[in-house]
């Protein structure tokens, strides 16, 4: 399936989650998302997402404790929040590792100007680099005798992490610009694409189906 189709499905799925208030429908949607996750990665991967599961439990408790009203209302409201949260988080599985890149190329293929498309590609390119660098910078801080943990140190943390990161990024941007200009980026209004992007029958069908579901849901909910 084309990543653009997946993206549409994801967006509409999230809209649906918030469109309905009926807890059974939300539970069904959440279950759907978990089920797809399970089909793709298996149960052990769900168990590995401990942080998410703990956090959702936390949402439940906090909502329950701080809300006013009678106990059933409180419980229903909290459960709704948790189910929506889990639904959104686990529906992320729709996007696999290679998809961000293909997503960007697909957008360009369906008419998004290539300059914007490549902004997205570079973002995906830079995120792991930033991650890698900030990791090293934090190690270097400790090697110079500063352990920046806790709320108290947040200012110093920003100062001693942000500037090395910023400087390194500026240097990189210089190199990247040279690399792109050196390879004729932006020379013409349009460019050709070597990569095959398929937007096949399946994609059209899925897109149509998901929009019909959305239209039907809105009709059901509001009219």
């Amino acid at each position: 399936m084309n990543p653009v189709t997946k993206f549409l499905i994801l967006i509409i799925y999230c809209i649906l989650l918030f469109l309905f208030h009926n807890i059974f429908i939300i539970a069904f949607l959440c279950f759907l998302s978990l089920f797809i996750f399970y089909l793709n990665l298996g149960f052990s991967e769900i168990k590995k997402r401990k942080l998410i599961l703990t956090f959702s439990f936390f949402i439940l408790i906090v909502n329950f404790v701080f809300l006013k009203g009678d106990i059933y209302e409180k419980l229903e409201f909290s459960l709704r929040m948790v189910l929506r949260f889990l639904g959104i988080v686990f529906s992320g599985i729709l996007f696999s590792k290679n998809d961000p890149n293909e997503f960007a190329y697909s957008l360009m293929k369906i008419g998004v100007p290539y300059r914007y498309g490549f902004t997205l590609v570079f973002t995906f390119r830079l995120v792991p680099l930033f991650d890698f660098e900030s990791n090293i910078i934090r190690k270097a801080q400790r090697a110079r005798g500063i352990e920046l943990e806790g709320v108290k140190n947040i200012l110093n943390f920003v100062r001693y992490t942000f500037f090395p990161l910023l400087y390194s990024a500026l240097e990189r941007v210089d190199s990247f610009t040279q690399s792109m200009e050196g390879r004729c980026f932006g020379i013409y209004k349009t460019r050709t694409f070597y990569r095959e992007i398929n937007f096949g029958k399946k994609d059209y069908l899925m897109t149509a189906a998901i929009f019909i579901i959305l239209a039907f849901s809105i009709y059901w909910r509001y009219l």
């Binding site: 490549f118 190199s175 932006g186 349009t190 460019r191 050709t192 070597y194 990569r195």
Partner: peptide, 24 residues
Amino acid sequence: ENQICTLNVTDELSFALENMCLDK
């Protein structure tokens, strides 16, 4: 690391050529 702009080897190799509007 500062020269490779894309996420896939084939995209990277075709990057300049696509910009030059060469055919497939």
